[in-house]
Design a protein around this nucleic acid. Structure first.
Lengths: 200, 200
DNA sequence: ATAACAAAACGCAACGTCACGTTATTGATT
DNA sequence: AATCAATAACGTGACGTTGCGTTTTGTTAT
């Protein structure tokens, strides 16, 4: 790229300011939540002008979306040998961010604001969710290849069932998702075994 | 109740104004969506003062929540003789409001705003969701009684799986839920049969 | 020279509250 | 029976506040 060689004239953008904004936004997100997070508050804490923030991001929702994106950019699940364990690992990876108490509200909050703009919806969907689905497909495919699921299994449907439960419990109702829940989910999705009440 | 007998002095609250506000809010919700819905806009269309709105509801989210509550106040599912059909009927009843294109965003939007206030969260949960869960428990219990599910089935878990898929697809990603999807869901939850790809 | 920077101010939109005069109902007084 | 406070919700309109996204100004780094 010639962009890197021929540096632009004038003062270059400060990566330091960029990172300070992200850090400040992350902190404030954890402290006050998405609804009470303001651009002006972020600028003040980052020691940065609002102008600088708007030079990098076009809205509060977009800024928050970038923060939310990172922990969700899921790497591949290593093959443990047991496809069921791989699925469980994938579930835990999805759930993990929800354990941060600010994450769920911020996720739904950002999604909600981005929905005001009809094209922001697609942007969010593409940016946040596409990586997860690819990872999920790969994991379920291992189960199909191992013969644990029929060859013509509707994998995307299973991904929606899985994601649905996790989002519903974790992000919407903010209930913790336990190891027990993971076990029940794998049993239901792969083996078709209904969940049993835990003898407490 | 003595409240009804001994009416308060002064001008009584206008049920007409109350209903006009609800109607106007419902219209505007369908026209501009939750995010762009304003109290002032509702007041203007209803021909009502903002004060009157705040006399009945304490926030936009609370007002919208009342609108959302009505279609969800689920009646009992009649016993068709086939518990599986009862479950399918329950699923269709949950999905039905999502066919209104404004409903899903309004649901997530109102929920999100109510979460800013930590006690509004409980209010929403109690008001919107409790009825659905009772209905769902009854339907799954019929399956248990009929021997289609083990006696110690964790019914609440199944309700979460079911609700999760429906909310995830219908309210969050705004995808239509087809008869095919209903069939797959019943097969998975009750019979443990994985969903198959539809030969299109 | 040029462009990103921080700071500060702008206009805008919506918020929630308030004071005002009006209207509807109740309870006491004629 | 008719009248008249007292009361309370009404619609209107204006208020100050907040946060937005933009614009301006002077400074700093390349």
């Amino acid at each position: 790229m010639t962009d890197e060689q021929r540096r632009r004239r004038g003062r270059p953008r400060s990566e330091q300011a960029h990172d300070a904004v992200l850090a400040a936004a992350r902190e404030l997100l954890a402290e006050v939540g998405y609804a009470r997070l303001t651009i002006e508050g972020v600028a003040a804490r980052a020691g940065v002008g609002k102008t600088t923030i708007y030079r990098w991001w076009s809205s509060k929702a977009e800024l928050v979306a970038e923060i939310l994106y990172r922990p969700i950019s899921i790497e591949e699940i290593p093959e443990s040998g047991s496809p069921r364990d791989d699925l469980a690992a994938n579930i835990r990876l999805i759930v993990e961010p929800f354990t941060d108490p600010w994450y769920g509200p911020a996720l739904t909050g950002a999604r909600n604001d981005l929905n005001a703009d009809p094209e922001g919806q697609k942007a969010f969907q593409a940016q946040i969710m596409s990586g997860r689905r690819d990872t999920g497909r790969a994991v379920f495919q291992r189960l199909v290849d191992a013969g644990d699921l029929p060859p013509d299994t509707d994998v995307d449907y299973l991904i929606d069932v899985m994601s649905g439960l996790l989002v519903y419990r974790g992000a919407i109702w903010r209930q913790p998702i336990t190891e027990e829940d993971v076990r029940k989910l794998v049993a239901l999705l792969v083996d078709g075994r209904p969940p049993r009440r835990t003898p407490s």
